[in-house]
Design a protein around this nucleic acid. Structure first.
Lengths: 194, 194, 194, 194
DNA sequence: AATGAATGAGTGTTCATTCAT
DNA sequence: GATGAATGAACACTCATTCAT
């Protein structure tokens, strides 16, 4: 296994700081102290704070997208696909709580910054892949008629809401405990009525 | 109609700045310029920036809670109650987009600050009122069995997700257009299977 | 006994604040809170902070001068006069530690301010009275030859040094315990050698 | 001869400002203007104003202590030691009036701040060295019986009082002129009566 | 690639003072 | 005489960023 590169060390340190202090309250010096890199090195690798945030964001979403991709390859029905959207989201949040918290809170910021277009492009792609995977089923009339953004909200909204609360420490119970239930509800919510 | 007090003017100005610049990027001077109050007056009334944020947050949630309360008084069935949770949330967001955006993004910050306990107390109360309104129906077995936090997430999660996207300008379509559909889905998601 | 006037209440409150916080760290609002007077009242009576400090200073030195005056009236020898300078100083410090501390630390400030001339005038007068009381003895050759400022320093310097340390809490022992010894040393230091 | 370091330049500039304006009235910008360093550099080296004050204080007292140390090495009698305490103090004040004024007025402030313990430790050490140098003579009964703090006050009090007045511009005559007389009086004041 | 001293515009906040009531 | 809301200049301090080594 390769040693983590300096860049990755910095990214990991930044994420830890963001988790503990919040993104705005984290200073470059905090990241320096935690990563062991010098200020000069930080700027050599990333150029500015915004780009550290952006790189972290993109790496996080890519990681999640990859996980989803793997699942889709094996899903053989509309139901499996929809449930996969829920379960893989929850599983990823549980496995990467810091990353999930950061992404959940920094989207607007990254979108507004210089890496905004890159982010939107990645999102478009991600969304398109999901739609493509579901396109066949939609044509078969498996799903209830609704706008794309509604569909996405209905499927992932409950999980995201629960994840937000859990990541903020407002839930005493485990997030994973609701995994199956939320997947089932998502499926029931979007399938065409029998 | 009474003229808005100096305190309210400051709060309104702060909200407008938060909407345009974001909370962190808003400086006290921006609020001063927009409100017409002097810096001294700002501090005379609120003491520090944190407390402006907190006051605005609490005022916003109170406003929404009041709206919900009014509706509950007239709701005569479990279905009406659940749908009301969705529709009154969406209606409030559409009617107060700036306030909604601010509240959606500042919860963690306020919770972490000196007014955190006041906020948690208000939330506890709000949540308790909703549960009380539904308690009777729950005992009758009207609802599918699930934890309280799951119930809340299933009912409001999709609306909140959609609202976030709409408030961030990521939706071209109107938020209100999904009103009935989301209410219906919420109800179907939590009712006991027939 | 007359009730203390509002002015005196303010002065007392100011002195207490100065003792606890230091003169610079004391704000008008602290004095307001402690005195019970309103900000407007404070400014009505004194005009500004500087004049509160000045009034307090002058009142304190006057009080000490009066005490000295009383003693001199009864002192019938050079030795008695010199020892009186020491003992009445120490007695006053022990009786009015807050006032003494304030005066010991604020002289330069008052001298530099608008009441500086009044202070210098009071000091000149005070000094002149002491010299007058000793003039006769000096002519008789009772004292060792030295400049006036040296004389004053030799007589009062040790007491003042000890008082400073005691007032700052750096001495565990009582200031009064050294009273007689310091008076004796002062006398031996200034008398002409036998 | 080495060029003064940036830190020393800042310290020198601060001392000059303190002399002209007083410590409280000196702003960071004044020190910046006088030292030529940037605000960032000031804070890079010292962290905050308090620490500039503390560093200056400690450097000044160290300088004086060193001077005293050198003298003690050559003093061969109780009389020489006592007189040295007086003369080296006066000589140092005359040679470093700004530093002396600053130290005379800032002790309480530094003691109350974060460097207070360092200062007290330095003082303890300084005091202990002096006592050690005199210990042998004390055992021989050379000195009049009195408490340590009295002894210190009697020896240095007159010089300090005179120095204060001279440094404040209240003395027209030279401080150095009293050097021998004060040393002599100090010795007479503490020696055991013949 | 790495370092860290230096930079300075910008921030939240303080507080003596004013003045209309 | 008394009140206290309003004022705004001034301050200590922060922190992303640069650049010579």
């Amino acid at each position: 296994m390769a040693r983590p590169s300096r860049k990755d060390e910095i990214l990991q340190a930044a994420l830890a700081c963001f988790t503990e202090q919040g993104v705005d309250a984290t200073t470059i010096e905090m990241i320096r102290d935690r990563s062991g890199a010098s200020i000069g090195s930080l700027y050599h690798h990333f150029g500015n704070k915004e780009r550290i945030i952006g790189a972290l964001y993109l790496a996080g979403t890519a990681q999640y997208a990859e996980r989803l991709e793997h699942g889709f390859a094996k899903a053989g029905s509309a139901e499996a696909c929809v449930k996969l959207l829920v379960t893989s989201y929850i599983d990823w949040v549980v496995a990467n709580p810091d990353w999930a918290r950061f992404i959940l809170h920094s989207r607007g910021r990254v979108e507004a910054g210089e890496m905004g277009e890159a982010l939107r492009e990645a999102n478009r792609l991600h969304f398109a892949r999901i739609l493509a995977a579901l396109a066949e089923y939609r044509q078969q009339g498996v799903f209830r008629a609704m706008a794309d953004n509604c569909f996405a909200a209905v499927v992932i909204g409950p999980s995201q809401d629960l994840a937000r609360n859990w990541l903020a420490g407002r839930s005493q119970s485990e997030l994973g405990a609701c995994r199956e239930l939320l997947a089932q509800i998502a499926w029931e919510s979007v399938r065409a009525n029998p």
